[in-house]
Amino acid sequence: MQLEYFQLIDRILDLNMDEKKITVEAQVPQHSTIFEGHFPGHPIMPGVLLIESMAQTSGWLLIALMKFERMPFLAAVKEAKMRGFVTPGELLTIEAGIVHEGSGYAITEAKVRVNGKLKCNATITFTLIPPPNPEFRGYMDAMAKRIDFPLQALPS
C-alpha cells in the first residue's frame, strides 16, 4: 500500500474471468501519518480507506472484464460493514465479485479479510466510462504492471 498515492492494492493474486472474481493482497504499512491521528495511541486503518481498497479491487476486476476499454468510477457504496479493526502491518486479502453488469454501470460485492477473518464488506456501484484522455491508458498500464495484472487472462 502506498497510502500517500492512494494506491491501496499491492498485488493481484487471482483473476478468474469465468467466475468474474478477483483476489488481491495489500499490506497495511507499519507507519503512516494517518495513524498518528487515527487514533493517537490506538492506530487503526480508517474505514473509508478499507472501502476504497474494496473499490480498487472491484475496479481492477471491472477493468479486466472490459479489457481496459472502460474505466470504473465509484458511484455508490451500500451495505458497508466494518466488522473489526485493521491495524498497521496487517496483510489484507481482498476479494471482489460481480453482482450485476448493467449498461454503463456495474455492481460488485467485496470483502476484506485478515488471516481469513472477515473484517469488512460492501456492495459497490460503479459507472463505466471511457478513459478521460489517451494518456490515461498509459497510466493504467503502468499501474497494472505494478500490481502484477495478469494480461494473459484477458480474452484476445
Binding site: 458511484a75 455508490a76 450485476h100 453488469e101 448493467g102 449498461s103 454501470y105 455492481i107 456501484t125 459507472t127
Partner: peptide
C-alpha cells in the same frame, strides 16, 4: 442506476 438494476433483475433484461 438503482432503478435500472432493480428492473434488470425483475425482468431478466439489460436496459
Amino acid at each position: 442506476l438503482d432503478i435500472a438494476f432493480a428492473i434488470d433483475k425483475a425482468f431478466g433484461i439489460k436496459l
